[in-house]
Write a protein that binds this DNA or RNA. Structure first.
Ligand code: FES
Ligand code: FES
Lengths: 131, 131
DNA sequence: GATAAATACGATAAAATTTATCGTATTTAT
DNA sequence: ATAAATACGATAAATTTTATCGTATTTATC
């Protein structure tokens, strides 16, 4: 319950790793995978998704790699999570579909919990987490 | 990611349902299961766990059932979740074991996220959710 | 131009977790 | 005794998460 996925953790590890390097240098998926002993292909997917979302930028080709592109202070943790995993809901009822439970009497309360979690995650920035 | 389980939702549904009834009356698992079309045996386990934790009290035997026992205002959502699901951590590294990722560089940041989620859930009470 | 090393990405397999069911024991009012 | 309820361990089914596979594309270097 309330778990952060590996996909997100791998992304955070990569960001934090890149932040400790000089601005100009590129980092490869292989390098990170080796250093933290993490599955490279899976890590690569987190990197690709961050690239798609302009958090980092990718350089292809033989001397390629990734570097941080965005201002991490401008990205809330809520936005970051949603970029990687889609809309953030503690119950799937809101985005995906309607309630599966007929006449569910706790939809509103659960929505309130959800709002509070989202609100909290909106106050934390990526920079704050990776700094 | 960050999902509330059925086990917890069934518990909330049951609490909310019982709150709308007169104080003295008992509610059976069957009654709730039927009304919300929810698997009775599974719901029963949520009820049993709440009973163990003195949130509700159970009466056995042919005219048995459950009724609310605790003051729901005195129970935070954090405590409630932990009574049902054990220690609340967005990553299993803290309670279960050590980090599986060698030299994980985001343990402290993730712990910070975790603290904030727990802090937030400490400010919400069960009463607030079921009222 | 061939090669090597990197990103990109869809498809699939494996593992883990969540959800549900089964079977049986116990309690208690009638 | 019986019926209707809680209690609970064991197991099965379903779903989700995690990991791997295979292939395509890009690009610096020789
Ligand atoms: S089934 Fe949608 S909130 Fe309960
Ligand atoms: S593996 Fe424990 S926080 Fe990263």
């Amino acid at each position: 319950m309330l778990k952060i996925t590996r996909k997100v953790e791998y992304a955070l590890i990569a960001l934090k790793h890149m932040q400790t390097k000089e601005d100009e240098s590129l980092t490869t998926a292989k390098e990170i995978a080796y250093q933290y002993n993490v599955p490279q292909q899976l890590l690569a997917k987190s990197l690709q998704q961050m690239s798609k979302n302009h958090i980092i930028e990718a350089t292809k080709g033989i001397n390629g790699g990734y570097r941080i592109k965005a201002n991490l202070n401008g990205i809330s943790l809520k936005d970051f999570f949603e970029k990687l995993e889609g809309p953030l809901g503690v119950m799937d009822c809101y985005f995906d579909s309607e309630c599966q439970i007929s006449g569910c009497n706790v939809k509103a309360p659960i929505e309130r919990i959800n709002d509070n979690i989202r609100k909290m995650l909106s106050t934390m920035t990526l920079e704050e987490v990776t700094q």
